[in-house]
């Protein structure tokens, strides 16, 4: 379980990203973290991962403080950032080098996911496009079988078949003990995957609901009520 209490965070004091933010996320859900550019989606993920530290308030992941970056905590977490940069090696070698750090990593699954995402195992990351690298890292993240998986704009740079393959893989890799957060502004790409939606606006979460309605409409209605579509308002 992820618990956030009274979280305040800023990069500069004049421009606060979060102000007394509170949130509880339970296992067994795929959360969609939505918000306009600059709303703080990536920052929230970084705070939950322990890549940034709260200015005040508390973040806990299964009772652990992410900022301490303990090995046990990190073994159960994988974060795929928006900006993917990988060492000069093939995915096969990457799995051999990094896989042992994750106790539940499954090399067979990694190979299978790479095939499904049409990424070669033997080509060096340096010779791959941005989208290919992202796919390889997502395949690794899914094969690591961590209990917490955070993906920042996961479908950026994906073509349409890859988006479909990603959705299918995510569905097959998901289980009740996992908590997955997908941060995105491309709501349509991931609409079918998300079962709970979090909308960030004005330094806080303004929606934390089940995703039982059209997400794009819900998002537009929440962050910009003036452009609410008829589908959402019921007209």
């Amino acid at each position: 379980m992820i618990t956030i209490n009274d979280l305040t965070f800023w990069y500069s004091k004049q421009n606060k990203v979060f102000w007394n933010l509170g949130l509880e996320l339970e296992a067994g859900h795929i959360y969609g973290l939505l918000g306009k550019n600059g709303a703080g989606k990536t920052t929230l993920l970084k705070l939950i991962c322990g890549l940034s530290f709260p200015k005040s308030g508390k973040v806990e992941v299964d009772g652990q403080i992410p900022g301490k970056r303990s090995a046990v905590f990190l073994e159960n977490l994988f974060f795929v950032p928006e900006e993917v940069s990988l060492p000069s090696m093939s995915p096969e070698k990457f799995a051999r080098t990094y896989g042992d750090f994750y106790p539940a990593f499954n090399a067979g699954q990694f190979k299978e996911y790479l095939e499904k995402l049409e990424v070669s195992q033997s080509v060096n990351f340096n010779r791959m496009s941005h989208g290919q690298k992202r796919k390889a890292l997502i395949a690794f993240a899914l094969a690591a079988n961590t209990r917490f998986l955070f993906l920042d704009e996961p479908t950026n740079g994906f073509d349409i078949p890859s988006k479909a393959a990603f959705r299918s893989l995510l569905a097959s890799a998901f289980s009740e003990e996992k908590t997955i957060i997908l941060s995105t502004h491309m709501v349509r790409d991931l609409e079918s995957m998300i079962d709970r939606v979090l909308i960030l606006e004005n330094h806080r979460i303004i929606q934390n609901n089940e995703a039982d309605q059209n997400l794009e409409d819900l998002f537009n209605a929440s962050v910009n009520p003036a452009v609410t579509s008829p589908a959402f308002t019921g007209h």
């Binding site: 970084k46 991962c49 322990g50 890549l51 970056r69 303990s70 090995a71 990190l74 073994e75 977490l77 994988f78 974060f79 950032p81 900006e83 993917v84 940069s85 990988l86 060492p87 990094y98 750090f101 994750y102």
Partner: peptide, 18 residues
């Protein structure tokens, strides 16, 4: 400055001492 590489390094499951 390379956020991808640095987050991969900092989130690698090992303690800071290691």
């Amino acid at each position: 400055t390379d956020k991808g590489r640095s987050s991969l390094y900092l989130l690698l499951p090992a303690t800071v001492s290691e």
